[in-house]
């Protein structure tokens, strides 16, 4: 029963969602809407689990003073402080939470992301070599697209933006479409296997 009941639940939920796409009758649409509400609530619980898990791991590291415990301590302090400020004072515009978010979190995350430019430049210098025909092709196309996607490319050759768009709309799209169709077929196959109880890895193992 430990397997049969979850498999039956997955079958009913999965089939209901599939059928609701084609049958708009309230007999199907209403339970499907209720189930979507459940899905939203269950997904929200992942946040609670996530916070609990990161707090548990971080506190364990701080308590045992293992490698980089100082960072974990900072994480716990920031987590508690932001949650406390948000719960006590609200998250609306002009509040303390909003101020901390806009003036601390936003610049810090933007800084982390902007570091990518430096790493890409370093990687391009060290690793982007024309070692084979394929690598040369990739290298040339990458350089053309990089120049064609910025205004200076247009100054170098007025036809470059149009040529870049052609690369995006023809070879790029052909490859993307192939990947997308393959991935969609894979997703349909996996979904059907889960609904029909053939694929049961989501139940875990014990």
């Amino acid at each position: 029963m430990r397997t049969e009941i979850p498999v039956a639940m997955a079958f009913i939920a999965g089939m209901l969602m599939v059928v609701s796409l084609f049958v708009p009758h309230p007999f199907i649409a209403e339970p499907a809407a209720v189930m979507r509400g459940w899905a939203i609530i269950i997904t929200a619980f992942a946040y609670v689990l996530g916070v609990a898990n990161i707090a548990r791991i971080s506190l364990h590291t701080v308590r045992n003073r293992t490698t980089d415990w100082q960072y974990k301590a900072a994480l716990v302090v920031a987590l508690v402080a932001m949650a406390g400020v948000g719960i006590a004072g609200g998250i609306n515009s002009g509040g303390l939470f909003d101020w901390a978010y806009l003036n601390m979190y936003v610049p810090m995350q933007a800084t982390m992301f902007s570091l990518l430019a430096f790493f890409i430049a370093s990687a391009a210098y060290r690793a982007f070599r024309a070692r084979s025909v394929e690598a040369t092709l990739l290298l040339v196309v990458a350089a053309v697209v990089m120049l064609g996607r910025v205004p200076v490319g247009e100054k170098l050759w007025p036809g470059l933006p149009a040529f870049t768009e052609w690369i995006m709309e023809v070879p790029n799209m052909a490859a993307k479409r192939g990947i997308m169709i393959g991935a969609a077929l894979g997703a349909i196959s996996t979904g059907l296997k889960m609904i029909l109880g053939i694929e049961r890895s989501y139940l875990g193992s014990d």
Binding site: A124, F128, L147
Partner: peptide
């Protein structure tokens, strides 16, 4: 930055 990355390459 894009031009410089192309020059690097």
């Amino acid at each position: 930055v894009h031009v410089m990355v192309v020059i690097f390459i």
